[in-house]
Design a protein around this nucleic acid. Sequence first.
DNA 1: AGCGAAATCGCAGTCTCTGCACGATTTCGT
DNA 2: ACGAAATCGTGCAGAGACTGCGATTTCGCT
Lengths: 210, 210
Amino acid sequence: MPLGLRERKKLRTRETIARVALDLFDRQGFRATTIAEIAEAADVAPRTVSAYFPAKEDLVFADQDEICDALAARLDQRRPGETAIDALRNWIVENLPAWEAREPELRTRRRVIESDDGLRNYGRRFHLRAQEIVATAIARDLGGSPDDLEVRMAAAATAAVLDVLGELRDRFHEESAATGDVSSRRDEAIALVDRALVFVGAGVRALRER
Amino acid sequence: MPLGLRERKKLRTRETIARVALDLFDRQGFRATTIAEIAEAADVAPRTVSAYFPAKEDLVFADQDEICDALAARLDQRRPGETAIDALRNWIVENLPAWEAREPELRTRRRVIESDDGLRNYGRRFHLRAQEIVATAIARDLGGSPDDLEVRMAAAATAAVLDVLGELRDRFHEESAATGDVSSRRDEAIALVDRALVFVGAGVRALRER
DNA sequence: AGCGAAATCGCAGTCTCTGCACGATTTCGT
DNA sequence: ACGAAATCGTGCAGAGACTGCGATTTCGCT
């Protein structure tokens, strides 16, 4: 189903509002920007903004839900023999090009988030969502429940990698904005996840062996 | 300094407001309870409630800041030779009696938090604060920076124990409300932290040995 | 062209939170 | 003990986010 014109228009409106909002947030600050301003800049009614984004904060995290869904689907449908963390690494590698393409936007978003306490806080719900997704996948590997302590610890440690990954992008961009060495960035991302793999693997093994 | 009359009165007012608010939240729901209602029940002006608690959510997490401060102080002032996780375990053991005494209140609070999505989300800031505190302490043990991946993973895994600890209290209370076997609860809490110790220790060692 | 559904919008209202100013109380220095 | 200064509780006014409801417009399809 190729998405009717109605759907496309809706998507486009949503995307426009989010884009305009992010730009205003970046220039004026999150708190200092009102819904009314965003509506005007996006050429819609204030009521429409609220219809698309129940909370002002959602304007910033517009696509996080989809990303989490994608991660969940990828981990859930991993092929037999591929561990949860392997799948996570592969998912990251598969998505690096797409993230590259959106780098300016992602950097702006990060800047906006960092600038506001409540916003940074709000974003943690997605971190936790990701952590739960990882926990579910790891639980399947280990044959336990997502509520088991060792599964939780493993998931928490693994999810920590995702944060570092985001920071890595910024650092890279600052250090080697000119070079644009995509492959080394890719390698570093992979190395990161591999370290998580080692850490978690050793931790779980140590608990199991007692 | 034995805290002047002014200070005591202030503390008492603050405590009264928080207590009354928690009760109303538990009976009517968080969203359904207005600041005005809380003010009336606590016999203060609505403006006063906002003066003490900048955000409505703070009414629920009234003491979390102090607890985090206490944890930070305990970890910071641990004696030489006591690792960060040792200190965490000891801190927990030292505080178990105090938590026992407040069990009904803590259970009510947990119930209220679980009942509201935004509230549950809001609470994560304290989880993260604790995680950062642990990260700082672990970084000192390991001689690294709190931003290092391995330190973060270790801290994230360790902080996961704190969540499980909270759930443990509820489960215990349901299973053995009659027995009130405090010592076995204590043992289980200790065992929990010890497993974290094993997990994190093995993980860090594995990363170091490569 | 026209009909039904869906998107957009306007309006009114609720609620949280803030800045400011004023009176009352407490504290402190002498 | 007494007056000055700090602090607290409070009332008021207002900004801004968000919601429910109903009207209006737009669109897809026949």
